[in-house]
Design a protein around this nucleic acid. Sequence first.
DNA 1: CGAGCTTTTGAACGCAGTCAACAATTGTGG
DNA 2: CCACAATTGTTGACTGCGTTCAAAAGCTCG
Lengths: 253, 253
Amino acid sequence: MTAGSLSPHTLMIRKLESTFTFADEEKQALQNLPIQVTNLKAGRDIVRVGDRPSQCCLILEGFSCVYKLTSEGKRQLVALHVPGDIPDLQSLHLEVMDNSIALISPCTVGFIQHEDLRCVCERYPRLTAAFWRETLVDASIFREWLLNNGRREAYTRMAHLLCEFLMRLKAVGLVEDDAFDLPITQVELADAIGTSSVHVNRVLQALRGDGLVQTKGKQVIVPDWEKLKEAGDFDPLYLHLEDVGAARSPAVA
Amino acid sequence: MTAGSLSPHTLMIRKLESTFTFADEEKQALQNLPIQVTNLKAGRDIVRVGDRPSQCCLILEGFSCVYKLTSEGKRQLVALHVPGDIPDLQSLHLEVMDNSIALISPCTVGFIQHEDLRCVCERYPRLTAAFWRETLVDASIFREWLLNNGRREAYTRMAHLLCEFLMRLKAVGLVEDDAFDLPITQVELADAIGTSSVHVNRVLQALRGDGLVQTKGKQVIVPDWEKLKEAGDFDPLYLHLEDVGAARSPAVA
DNA sequence: CGAGCTTTTGAACGCAGTCAACAATTGTGG
DNA sequence: CCACAATTGTTGACTGCGTTCAAAAGCTCG
C-alpha cells in the first residue's frame, strides 16, 4: 500500500490523527476542505524566497525539499518532505517566504487556500492545535539537523539522515521489509548534510562497506536497523511520533 | 530604557503586538495571565530533554540558550533567546522536550502555566495566531542557522550571528548607539556556530582587526552596520520583524 | 544511441580541530 | 580590600576531515 493510494484528505487526516483524536464533525470539516491536486515535474520550485503565498501545499506523492541559498549561491537544504507533509504551513502566519521549496522527484501536490484553512481552524480549535503541532514538529527536526550538521561527522550525519527517512516513511506506510525508495541525488544529500557531494559519495561507500545500508538504484535497504541507529547516533524522540502514547504513561513523579 | 523596566505582561504584549493588532479585550486577557516571576543564576537548566513541562517560560531579563547533545557529549546550541522570548513555547503542543534550555547569564524568568495559556488561546483565536506565529519565527531562525552553520565559513558565520543579535536586541530596545551587552562566553559562541572555541577566538580577533566589531568586556560595539551585514551575508528577512508593514505594500503584481 | 545527468576516483590543498600551555579576568572568601 | 581559585581568553604547533578540481565511467531517457 503506497501513500498515493489514499485520497488527499484521508492522507492529511491520518497524519494529524496520529497524535490527536478528532470528533466526526472535525474530520468532516477536513474532508470538506477544498484541495486542488496537481502533478508536477521534478526540479520545479513550488515557492521561492520573497513570495507571499495565499495557499499551502500538501505533498501527496514524491519528495520535496526546503532550501536556502547564501549570496555566493551555496545551497543548504533545511528540510525534506515526504507524502503527508505540508512544507509551507508556516506561510499561514508568516507573510513572506524566507525559504524556497523545490521538488526533488516528480510529485503529486495538493494546494489548500489559506482562507479555507483559516476558516476551518477558526471553527475548530482542535484543528488549529493539530496544524500548529505539525509546524512544531518541523521545528524540532530543524533543531536535530542543527545538532547533526554541527556536531557529528559526515559518516554519522548520513547514517542519521537515513534513519530519519526510514522512520518518517514508515510512519506513512512507505517502508516495506526495511526498504524504501529514495529518489534523491548525492548532490542533494550533500546539500542536506552540509558537505560536498564528493564526500557524500565516499561516506555512502563506507556505509555500504560496513553493511549498514544496501542500495539498488533508488531503493535503500537497511539490513540492520539497530546498527544503523547506533552508527547515526539516532534517537527518534525528536520526531514526536508517539507523544500521545507517551502521555498515557506519565513520567514518574 | 532596558527591557527589564517593563512589566512581564507589557513586554510580552509589545512583542506580540509588533505584528498583530489586538483588541482591548485581548490585551486585557493577556494582562490577566498569571505569570510567576523568578530570578535564576547563570548556568542553570530550566528544562531538560525528556521533561514534560506543564508551563512555558518567558525570558524577562538576561539570555538563555536551547541546546542539544550528541551521545559523545558534544553540544550544539540551536537557539539563543533574549528578553521577550518564550524559549519553550513548543511544549504547549509537544508533550516531551526534545531539547534542554539553559541560562547563559543570570536571568529573570516568568513562568506561565500551559493551562492558562490554553485557556486564553481558546477564547481569543487571534492570540492563538500570535503565539503560533512566535513559534514559526523561531523555526525560521532555525532554518537560517542551518544555512549559516552549513554553508558559510566561520568568519562569516560569526558576523552573521552578531548581526542577528543586534537586530533582535534592537527590537526589544536593548541596543543603544549600535552597542549592546552580550554576556556569552566564546565556548558558547562556538557551540552556537558549530566550531571549536579556539577558532571562535581567532575569528573574533579577525573581525576586530577588520574593524567590524569592537568589544569592551561584555559589551559589543558595531561601528559600521552595513559592513558587518555584508561580512555576515546577513538579510534580516528571516526574522520576520516587519511582515505586517511589508504586507501593507504588497509585491508588484 | 547520443546528450546530459549522476556517480565514482585520484591528488593536492586548506579550513578548522585538537592539544597543551599560559595569560587575563572574574568571582569569592577571609 | 586583597589573595587565591576558577573560569575565560589567547597563542602556537601539529593533525585531519573534508573540499576542490578534474576527469572518467555509468545511467537514464528522449
